[in-house]
Nucleic acid binder design. Structure first.
Lengths: 248, 248
DNA sequence: GAGCATTTGTCCGTATGTATT
DNA sequence: CAATACATACGGACAAATGCT
């Protein structure tokens, strides 16, 4: 159908991918070139097309692998649980604390928390994995007076929410968030193992105690678009009782 | 600094771009190749890197042009006005009605509107331009009983909201929306003038009358990520009076 | 650790196709 | 029709990362 050979090749490969489970290694560029009777450059273009479609992830020296892409839904009514979302999709979640340090609160985050800029805070840098592959990188900020003992507690428990619940007896809830796509700073690019610079999801968020309304912590999370699709559901105010929720 | 020559080249070009107004034509691949002493293939890779960073838009046979990228903020408190957003950013907005036809309401949209699948509706297909370049493509669905005379009114007025306000005396407000990135159907790809298949923004939305809460219309809008950045702001329920809004 | 094969990443030169001006 | 500019394609070479022996 298609007179462009690399797209033709990509179509065939894309169709074959749909039956392969995530993580499967696909044919190498040279094998594809041989099979379709094209040059390695054309075969490479085809695989790069699959990469642009977020269907595969490529690793130099290793190979090209089918991606597992997960829907991460953000809505007011849903508690944010990344581990559960990944497990529900059939993936194996893991998160690693990369660093915990104290740092004065930057201005933008301070005003989000309703604090003064420069107040002491914990900065918690964490990496999230799906099936052993990097998915996200997050910076979480918690004012020191909110949780002085964070340093020792954090390595034992998977989420800061959990620590807050147990040690402070609060119920953290997502009070505000902003989602977009950004080209992140080089530190984050390295953390996400991205080669060329490209946009990734950025979720900025603020947690408050659902009982008192006190601002507890805030975070910025960058996520690779080839491992998750972030969907934001927003319900408006003009809703009357008795009406059904907006359907799918 | 960078031993990868195409990235080195891309860095230099990217720095130069920041001082060029949107729409400026940049040097051709051959000129870049000559200037930096690299092959045309390497020059091409550099420009493609700029394209991946959403800094430029390429048009075969014409050239490579600096993109105007606009922030489109979706939040509960903001009336959705695309024309105003574009003008505020210094761009020239235009929208064109591509097609108006009657079609039975598809199931997913019917349930979003609280209607039965298959009810008669107007389907309004529209293209949005910024500075003469395609930015978005939308499908808007309005039940026929809501606005029987749509066919004649639509070409004179820029927005369906406007028509509803004038002819039905309702106040449309964004009642629900969902945002993500998708690889759209081929019709939309063509409408957005995308060559290779890649993900674009998809905003699904539902409008209700702010007075009665009646569902008025719903729409799906696809937007090129190189012309707009869609930002969703969500405020939660755990908000007490007297507290300041979440800062920037 | 060293060595090797595999695989992706970069780069060159050249040629031809296709859309725009 | 001609010139320009981007798009596709080929063949060849070497670099860099990975995985295994």
């Amino acid at each position: 159908m298609n007179r462009v050979r690399y797209l033709e090749t990509a179509e065939v490969l894309a169709a074959e991918l749909t039956t392969s489970p995530p993580g499967t290694k696909i044919a190498s560029e040279n094998e594809i070139a041989g099979r379709f009777g094209v040059s390695r450059a054309a075969a490479r273009s085809a695989v790069q097309e699959l990469e642009r479609r977020l269907l595969v992830r490529r690793v130099q020296g290793s190979g090209t692998f089918v991606s597992r892409r997960i829907d991460y839904v953000i809505s007011r009514d849903r508690a944010p649980s990344w581990h559960q979302t990944v497990r529900d999709a059939g993936g194996v979640p893991r998160s690693v604390v990369r660093e915990v340090r104290r740092e004065p609160l930057p201005g933008a985050l301070a005003s989000r928390l309703g604090r003064a800029a420069g107040e002491p805070a914990h900065l918690l840098i964490r990496q999230y994995y799906i099936d052993g592959l990097v998915a996200s990188w997050s910076n979480e900020w918690i004012p020191v007076d909110m949780l002085p003992e964070l340093d020792v507690a954090v390595r034992a428990v998977e989420s800061v929410d959990e620590i807050l619940r147990q040690l402070r007896n609060v119920r953290p809830g997502r009070a505000w968030c902003r989602v977009g796509m950004e080209i992140p700073a080089s530190e984050v690019i390295a953390g996400l193992e991205i080669e060329g610079t490209r946009p990734v999801w950025l979720v900025e968020s603020l947690s408050r105690d659902e009982q008192t309304g006190a601002a507890l912590m805030c975070s910025n999370t960058w996520s690779r678009p080839d491992v998750c699709r972030i969907v934001v559901e927003m319900s408006g105010r003009a809703r009357r009782t008795g009406e059904s929720d907006a359907g799918q």
